[in-house]
Design a protein around this nucleic acid. Structure first.
Length: 772
RNA sequence: GGGGCGAUGGCGGAAUUGGUAGACGCGCUGGUCUUAGGAACCAGUCGAGCAAUCGGUGAAGGUUCGAGUCCUUUUCGCCCUACCA
């Protein structure tokens, strides 16, 4: 099954519709039909009976059902969460839409805002998602590693610090992977969102501090360059291993609420962040780990020491090897003393799926005035998007649809959820839909998915290494949870990550992007075709995108060179996992090769029409059989560029070989086989030539005959002292002695044998190495 | 800061298990045919050398009869990730 679907919800459609005053549905559907024409012209073997589009009601109604199923299983929930808020566009921005702390569209300084958001409980499956990576033995290591890091399992320990001070705060819990540095404890820092913040809500200085923190945004980038700042409370934390030591408690901007407990214990000598913070606020920097080669007087001065070492200045921990021995040992001691306990945390957070957008799948939930949640009943599904709405409003257009928002369930007046689902939800289960594309009652049927799933071979860009692939793996687990009829956990058995098609980028002197169509080459310089032929600057080759105007129109390529030239070029030079550089020379050389193949075809036809008597079929049989074998291998290994190279070799072989005499039958049979195995690469060409040859049968993959490939003679590499000195073409399976005799007979080789032979290394039919 | 991947001619890149390095294409050089060619065809194309030969897969070392391939160190490049406690 080779299906095609359209991931058709999302911002690009909504934005384009906004700009051109169109309905997103109309815009999307017209784009789909254009692309469909192009894909068909390229001759891709897509099963169009299984076509799906995620923005169709037929698709998203099942998604809403899934959503409610997960809701029942408590795998979906709503909570307040901080988001990147664009105050001008009145919308939530994803992290990647925040550039230098500003909204990518409005340029407004992005704020941190608390919003009620829907979440999928992906973290429930953290361990399973991590452990099961081991079973995915056909996935690239790189992708598995990226997922592993993303899930981010870390082993450590929770420590519940006793707090002293005027406020009713008795304890603060911290997570640490380095409990062994507890004797270096010199401050405790909590997130500004930590529960103790409620005691400071009215403190003017704290409000000011919080403001400063929120200005720096929530993006990783802005945090990375941001300075470490803190707000000192009048609380003191007691060191549980040395109760005489009491250290200050700070709010700090570098502590994140959603990792661990939103509180850290500061050990400046052995953590760079803590070190920077301690320097700024003049806190104690006590060295408790030394490098192995140093003595106990070692002290940390310029920067934190976080390499492996030995514990010092730490009472009962002294002398332990850090961190491999010291961490488990410390945890054991802390556990017996009831100070802390072993804890595993994950970096993976629950998946926020709420989007304040129109063009997405509506979330099938309604609320009463108190904000209680009511799932939309099954007979009222799907929740359809309203039509003919005004997109040019502040915030979420759905929020402005009074009529649509109101709904009565069981006589109760309720208000609909106006957020729509992240489009990654749509792509998390579409492969199930491909199995049962027309099933009305449910997203799939058990019979169909039992037959088809899991996906044998998944192909996608590396950009999906984490999110899409992880969400899909989660979605299968979520559907399987408390569901005996669903046995799939891993959707994709084999994964191949392909590269993209890239093109140089061009800019005119005013810094506007220029499309390759607008350019001509004059005396080796690239200039604008119109507008006084101004010289343009050539930028780096990047993946084709409309925003950079470095795209090539596939229709024009097909018109100028034909679909097969385009297919040939895309596959020819680079291996498929790498990016391809689009070039005029490249496509034209592919075009020329098809012309050459055509000349070869004419020669074949000519030879087939002649009446040869003699048949020296051996060469041609050998070549064809080997060719089939090679192509089979390369296809299986995705070595498409090597297939194209072999096709060139095939041309070079036959264009000469056809000067020899062959019978009609030999020529015809072998040529058909050749055309068959190259037909996946250039189907239009082979279809045409097969028709001209009056070949009427359906094509089936030819079997090669291994016996024909067995050679009688073989090339033996002759090495003297490991250095290659020559080649001998000899009969197969000769003994070591016989080969040695041949070497001695050969003048060119024997002249190197100047002394007694100490050793002979013989690899049968391959190599003889003589050691003097 | 942490992690990963990679480095082979002028270029894109080949090279099952360690066993003829540079397949194939682009580009370039020379030639043939042409009024012309940016078409087609033929020959050549890792470097040095007239040659025999010698050197050569980022660098240095190691294992091995034998290393582009395995190990150690190192340089450079790319990618991912990041106040993750």
């Amino acid at each position: 099954m080779h299906p095609m679907g359209w991931d058709s919800f999302g911002m690009p459609a909504e934005n384009a519709a906004k700009q051109n005053n169109l309905d997103p549905k109309t815009w999307t559907e017209s784009n789909i039909s254009k692309m469909k024409v192009q894909l068909k012209k390229l001759g891709l073997s897509i099963d169009w009976d299984r076509e799906i589009s995620t923005c169709s009601e037929e698709y998203y109604k099942h998604q809403q059902k899934f959503f409610l199923e997960l809701y029942k299983k408590k795998l979906v929930y709503r909570k307040e969460n901080y988001v990147n808020w664009d105050p001008v566009d009145q919308t939530v921005l994803a992290n990647e839409q925040v550039i230098d702390g500003k909204g990518w569209r409005s340029g407004a300084v992005v704020e941190r805002k608390k919003l009620n958001q829907w979440f999928f409980n992906i973290s429930k499956f953290s361990d399973d998602l991590l452990e099961s990576l081991n079973q995915l033995d056909k996935w690239p290591k790189k992708v598995k590693l990226m997922q592993k890091n993303w899930i981010g399992k870390s082993f450590g320990c929770e420590i519940n610090f006793k707090i002293e001070g005027a406020l009713p705060i008795k304890r603060i819990k911290c997570f640490t992977t380095r409990p062994d540095t507890l004797f270096g404890f010199s401050f405790l820092a909590v997130s500004i969102d930590h529960e103790i913040a409620k005691f400071y809500e009215k403190d003017k200085d704290f409000i000011k501090f919080k403001d400063e923190c929120s200005k720096s945004g929530t993006t990783e980038e802005s945090i990375a360059v941001g300075e470490k700042i803190g707000f000192k409370t009048d609380l003191l934390a007691i060191n549980p291993v040395d109760p005489s030591k009491k250290v200050p408690v700070y709010f700090a901007n570098f502590v994140l609420m959603d990792y661990g407990f939103g509180a850290v214990f500061g050990c400046p000598a052995h953590d760079q962040r803590d070190f920077d913070f301690a320097k700024k606020y003049n806190l104690e920097i006590k060295t408790v780990v030394k490098p192995k080669e140093e003595d106990d007087t070692f002290t940390v001065k310029e920067k934190a020491f976080s390499d492996d070492g030995v514990i010092i200045n730490s009472d009962f921990l002294n002398g332990l090897e850090a961190p491999n021995n010291s961490v488990p040992e410390t945890i054991k001691i802390l556990e017996t003393r009831k100070i802390g306990k072993k804890l595993i945390t994950f970096r993976l957070k629950d998946w926020g799926v709420s989007r304040q957008r129109y063009w997405g799948c509506p979330i099938p939930i309604a609320y009463d005035e108190e904000g209680n949640e009511y799932p939309i009943p099954d007979d009222m599904l799907p929740v359809k998007l309203p039509k003919n709405i005004d997109l040019n409003v502040k915030g979420n257009p759905l929020d402005h649809q009074k009529n649509w928002k109101e709904i009565i369930i069981d006589g109760k007046r309720l208000t609909r959820e106006t957020d729509t689902l992240d489009t990654f939800v749509c792509s998390s289960w579409y492969y199930l839909r491909f199995c049962s594309p027309t099933e009305k009652n449910y997203g799939y049927t058990k019979k169909d998915i039992d037959y088809w799933m899991p996906v044998d071979q998944y192909i996608g860009g590396i950009e999906h290494a984490i999110l899409h692939l992880l969400y899909s793996r989660f979605f299968m687990r979520a559907l399987a949870f408390e569901n005996e009829n669903f046995n799939i956990t891993e959707p994709f058995e084999d994964l191949f990550t392909q590269g993209m098609v890239c093109h140089e980028t061009y800019k005119d002197p005013e810094d506007n992007w220029v499309s390759p169509d607008e350019i001509e080459v004059v005396n080796g310089e690239k200039r604008l075709r119109i507008n006084n032929k101004i010289k343009i600057t050539v930028g780096p080759s990047e993946s084709m995108s409309k925003s950079k105007k470095n795209t090539i129109d596939p229709e024009k390529i097909i018109e100028d060179y034909g679909a097969d030239s385009a297919r040939l070029f895309i596959l020819s030079d680079s291996p498929p996992e790498k990016d391809v550089q689009w070039s005029e020379e490249g496509i034209s050389s592919s075009y020329k090769f098809i012309q050459k193949l055509w000349n070869l075809h004419l020669k074949f036809e000519d030879e087939i029409s002649k009446k040869h008597k003699k048949d020296s079929s051996e060469n041609i049989l050998k070549f064809t059989n080997l060719f089939i074998k090679k192509i089979e291998n390369y296809l299986e290994n995705f070595s498409y560029n090597v297939i194209i190279a072999s096709m060139h070799e095939m041309y070079n072989f036959f264009i000469k070989e056809l000067n020899n005499e062959y019978t009609k039958e030999t020529l015809y049979e072998n040529y058909i086989k050749i055309l068959t195995v190259i037909s996946p690469i250039i189907p239009h060409y082979t279809s045409e030539t097969l028709e001209l040859l009056k070949y009427k049968n359906n094509l089936s993959w030819p079997l090669y005959n291994e016996d024909i490939l067995i050679e009688d003679s073989v090339n033996i590499v002759v090495q003297i002292n490991g250095k290659k000195r020559g080649l001998l073409t000899l009969n197969k399976n000769l003994s070591e002695e016989m080969i040695f005799e041949e070497i001695q007979k050969d003048e060119k080789l024997s002249k190197y044998i100047s002394g007694p032979i100490k050793n002979k290394i013989y690899i049968q039919n391959k190599l003889m190495n003589l050691i003097l």
